[in-house]
Design a protein around this nucleic acid. Structure first.
Lengths: 344, 344
DNA sequence: CCGGTTGCGGTAAACATTTACCGGGAACCG
DNA sequence: CGGTTCCCGGTAAATGTTTACCGCAACCGG
């Protein structure tokens, strides 16, 4: 079953069939209709490998993530897949598990399969490896930072906006002792979040207490460890912001286990707003970084490069606060007492 | 950069290069070494599309899941990808979102891309659509049930074993009033789980109370609805088993919100043992169905078909209880009182 | 009515690889 | 030393599509 069969049935040449399929506008509509009918009748579809071989384009987009089990990523993948398929592309997934060697192999796979473009959403670039892709002039998309090359775009996430909203939200509730659990600081994104927090704090006129800044690792275990550290200190903050939701969940766990009630005794804000955040008890207030938006921008950028339709260097991504039930007035304030009385 | 370049550098013919790459044993080892060196020096790798075109094999495996955002699936995908890549295959992901139309398009994509085999892990087959794949004699893998064809294998999940362990665990703790929140009963897997529960109950000599069987939909919202229903009834069970973890999380939510403590007032057991189960407060006792095992079996089955190495019709998958902290003695029993006293 | 221009259809080359088949060379045996 | 056999390497065909180029036909205008 190939293009010849269609041509025969439609009583046209294979060139006409090909042109019809590829929507070349000069094809006689009457013949085009015949061709489409033949295609339908034979249930024909073009051989992708042959098309890719001759056209040099695979219609495959690579998506490299750090860890598919971190719930942030599946949501990203889903969005990416959806948008890509919509635009007629297929998605090749690679997960690095934070290992350079696996990243290496992912890249190799992308090159072997001839991906038209690759989105690297590991939130931490491995410069030397990626040069292989860049050298082949394969369009690339990164998050936050990227080498400066014409075939590379960056999704610039505006961490400040959401984090400022979060800090203002806490400040408005009356919090003055706010802790921050960072991600691994070698990650650019984790670093930016901490910086944004410090700036927002200053804007709100709240002094930064260095003891309230703890380094985590973007996992639940990291959050638990950070919370343990907090509990070990003399003075407890009245609110905790976390560099991502997994940390926040870990913190929530350890604090609950220690007998503290959230948000009555201590408020918690996460980051990313993964779906799990909504499912915690209490549902987590978090700062949303839309996976759908990231995915859409990433595919859009790659398409712009591949299809040569004015690709941009930077694509802005917004963040915003989503208030749920893990934040409340600090314990012992007038508002807190009034509310407690009202509930009693 | 093609096979000719390698041949030129290695001073052999392109046939020798091809044979070397494909590990044909008759190649002179000295020449083979020259070829490998040339390949390394040029950083050459074969063009996948050309290989696929001529050999008729794409080294692409399809994986169709129902919903990538349901945390069960990413873990499955990760395992699948890992095993597939290990065996030299790439993975094409499709998610149906439970929509027949999207399933249709997934299948079409798999056919267009010439997938060597497809694993359909939606836990509910859409018979008519899949005939398209079966008609093309593409190897397929299903879960639980599948049409009886030589190129199709089934992963037979032994729901009974894990569920029996769960019921026995509850019975041993002293529970007699055990509720079950089912999945959507049109899903074969949900049906099997309910059946296994009923059998296990009978084995333990516990009578089945029809009012304690509630239909959910494998989402958190479904679990919350089921818990509401439970709370509305006069008599509350002392333990709840759920057809999957998302339901259990929903139940946990609603019960907590209603002021019930888990496990002190009521015990909960989930199913699947997704990673999130461990992260709940309290960590959820659950019945594990190993994603890694499912993935390994699925890829193994597909490879066996593709590579014609004795494929089997059925591959057994085991389930087992993982006890965490959402199960305890029922409230008011001697053990419960003794424990409560000891804790006080 | 004739010539030119436009527009559409067909043919063939190119894409990079695999693999069957053929031919040549070397080695061993008579 | 010559012949036969075996083994390995090279050549060429085939895979299914795209696309450039050529040629033909039709229509319109002069």
């Amino acid at each position: 079953m190939d293009i010849h069969a269609v041509a025969r049935l439609a009583r046209v040449s294979i060139a006409t069939v090909s042109r019809t399929i590829n929507r070349v506008p000069t094809v006689n509509p009457r013949l085009a209709k015949q061709v489409w009918e033949a295609i339908r009748e034979l249930n024909y579809f073009p051989n992708t490998q042959a098309r890719a071989l001759v056209s040099g384009r695979s219609r495959l987009l690579g998506l490299i993530v750090s860890e598919i089990t971190n719930p942030f990523f599946p949501e990203l993948i889903q969005g990416f897949e959806e948008v890509a398929v919509e635009s007629g592309y297929e998605v090749l997934i690679g997960s690095t598990n934070y290992e350079a060697e696996r990243m290496q192999r992912c890249i190799r796979r992308m090159m072997e399969r001839n991906a038209d473009g690759v989105a690297v959403m590991t939130f931490g670039i491995e410069q030397p490896l990626l040069d292989q892709l860049a050298d082949r002039k394969i369009p690339l998309v990164f998050v936050d930072v990227a080498p400066d090359r014409p075939e590379i775009s960056v999704l610039k996430v505006d961490y400040s906006h959401g984090i400022r909203q979060g800090v203002q939200h806490l400040a408005a509730l009356g919090h003055r002792e706010i802790a921050f659990v960072t991600g691994p600081l070698r990650l650019h994104s984790a670093h930016s979040r901490l910086e944004a927090f410090e700036e927002a704090l200053e804007e709100c006129g709240i002094p930064l207490d260095k003891r309230f800044v703890l380094e985590g690792d973007h996992t639940m275990e990291g959050g638990m460890a950070a919370a343990e550290q907090m509990l070990a200190q003399k003075k407890l903050p009245t609110a905790v912001m976390c560099s991502n939701d997994m940390l926040a969940i870990g913190v929530l766990h350890t604090l609950s286990r220690a007998g503290l009630r959230v948000p009555a005794d201590i408020s918690i804000i996460g980051f990313d707003d993964i779906r799990m955040a909504e499912m915690m008890i209490p549902p987590l207030t978090s700062i949303q970084m839309s996976r759908a938006e990231l995915a859409r921008a990433a595919v859009g950028a790659l398409r712009a490069h591949v299809e040569k339709t004015s690709p941009q260097r930077e694509y802005p991504i917004d963040t915003r606060l989503v208030v749920r039930q893990s934040t409340d007035f600090p314990k012992g304030t007038m508002e807190h007492l009034r509310k407690a009385k009202a509930e009693a």
